[in-house]
């Protein structure tokens, strides 16, 4: 079971400022996801290799060739804030 402390911990790692109400809602939702996983855990997987993929593929690679980038302006177009050619983000230096 996920408790309040777990939710606070994950929220801190993900830089999310959650209200009391949101913390509680997240706790409930995360627990219901875990409950769903318990159902999956019931499946007999004896002798089945663990995998991170549903597709049976390996070694999908590309040659080391340069392709065109997107123009600088279009890459910066959606930025909430910019300074010239750079993305501008809230100061992240810790005192």
């Amino acid at each position: 079971m996920i408790d309040r402390k777990d939710v606070e911990h994950v929220a801190r790692l993900t830089r999310l400022a959650l209200t009391e109400e949101e913390l509680e809602r997240m706790r409930e939702q995360l627990n219901s996801i875990l409950t769903h996983l318990d159902t999956l855990r019931g499946v007999d997987t004896e002798g089945v290799e663990p995998t991170a993929h549903a597709v049976d593929l390996v070694n999908v690679m590309r040659e080391d060739e340069v392709e065109p980038c997107l123009p600088q302006d279009s890459m910066l177009a959606n930025a909430p804030d910019r300074s010239g050619e750079l993305f501008r983000v809230p100061r992240i230096i810790e005192e």
Partner: peptide, 26 residues
């Protein structure tokens, strides 16, 4: 390498900021 690890953007040092990016590497 000439291109990046997971996309075709070039790896050249010293280019204008944010001129060598694409949706993958952003």
């Amino acid at each position: 390498t000439r291109s990046k690890m997971f996309c075709g953007c070039p790896t050249t040092f010293g280019a204008a900021p944010n001129s060598q990016t694409c949706p993958v590497c952003q």
